[in-house]
Amino acid sequence: MRGFTKDPRDDAAVARPGLAAAAGSPVIVLDTADNVAVCRRNVATGEALAMDGDVVAARADMPLGHKVARAFIPAGALVVKYGMPIGSATADIEPGDWVHLHNMRSNYISSHTRASAVPA
């Protein structure tokens, strides 16, 4: 259990009021411990993203369901979603950055797209 901190099911309890409260924001924060938020719709570069008190400008176009950094995540640090680590940063990530295969990797096993693999 690499760096495991909590039960991801607890996010459901957090997400419920969070979702209702965040109805006006394009992103939702699933757990207060998270350093990423999730796009509830497609987000355009420069959009102001309200995330649990912080407001961050989107630094990329990001589709529905993708992750955006809430805070600075240094290379090598854990990416936290649902209050649990979901991998490690492979580059410094700025608040508002899109967080995906280009700047993070699994701590368990490789991910892949049709074109390439992202080693763990």
């Binding site: 999730v38 990416v79 699994s106 797209t113």
Partner: peptide, 10 residues
């Protein structure tokens, strides 16, 4: 991955 998931643990 296209849908925004980056890793198996996520």
């Amino acid at each position: 991955a296209e849908g925004g998931l980056s890793t198996l643990e996520e």
